[in-house]
């Protein structure tokens, strides 16, 4: 069914810390690796070793520069499915392939039902869905349902691949519907926010803004190299005069 559930029991999602993300793309690479063999597999690549490689990725890491009066700021920005509460990608689906799960709020595609009309990718404001020209179907982030509920993995591994691999702990996974969860507290403490809130898709994933910068004192520290030793020194002065002839 492509009508959205009125409410979901849990709101599983990610909290992404833009303060600590170093833009290493490890999340994107580990996501690609895990999902090439998982629920949505394969994540096909076209012309992978040619001049115009193209392929399906669930995670894309942009780097933005913010120009402000007090100087610039560089922010690495991972972008993936936000598992919206008001998921337009689900309601536009003509076949029922796209759906949002009532139990945990994860937005998924049933690959066996997808006709590849691409309308869901048009409806998504965040560019989270990528069409796989090889399978003729749409692909998207599954929040690693084949990891987070996987009892063959040790408990600490039951998190999405992007979270497990992040070397700077910039990605956090949990239930954002539970105000006492670690992720909800993190959002509250750090002022976690929605992307494009004016569009009212009510994304589950939240982003933590970069922390305020410490003001750098401008006094004291030298800003230029000291001038080269000159004619006031006996030996170097003599050498300077000799070489200047």
């Amino acid at each position: 069914m492509t009508t959205l559930p009125a409410a979901t029991d849990k709101k599983l999602g990610l909290v992404i810390d833009l303060d600590t993300c170093v833009g290493c793309h490890a999340c994107a690479v580990n996501c690609k690796q895990w999902n090439s063999g998982g629920e949505m597999a394969p994540l096909t690549d076209q012309d992978p070793y040619g001049s115009e490689p193209s392929g399906v990725w669930f995670n894309r890491v942009h780097t933005y520069e913010v120009e402000a009066e007090d100087g610039g700021r560089t922010v690495h920005f991972p972008r993936s499915c936000l598992h919206c509460e008001n998921a337009a990608c689900v309601t536009v689906c003509p076949t029922g392939a796209s759906y949002k799960r009532t139990e945990d709020g994860i937005v998924l595609i049933d690959e066996a039902l997808c006709i590849g009309c691409k309308l869901c990718s048009w409806a998504c404001p965040y560019g989270a869905r990528e069409y796989d020209g090889h399978s003729g179907t749409m692909k998207k982030c599954t929040l690693c349902i084949d990891r987070i509920y996987n009892e063959t993995l040790s408990e600490d591994e039951r998190v999405p691949a992007c979270v497990s691999t992040c070397p700077s702990s910039a990605r956090h996974f949990g239930d954002l519907g539970d105000p006492t969860s670690k992720v909800s507290k993190l959002v509250e403490e750090r002022g976690g926010y929605d992307l494009m809130p004016e569009s009212n898709y009510r994304p589950t994933n939240k982003y933590l803004p970069p922390r305020p910068r410490n003001a750098v004192p401008r006094s004291g520290a030298p800003t230029e190299l000291p001038p080269a030793p000159g004619s006031d020194q006996p030996f170097l002065g003599w050498l300077d005069r000799l070489l200047s002839r």
Binding site: T63, V66, E67
Partner: peptide
């Protein structure tokens, strides 16, 4: 923080 522009594409 100010004006946002993309520095490096993904």
């Amino acid at each position: 923080f100010g004006t946002v522009r993309q520095l490096i594409a993904p």
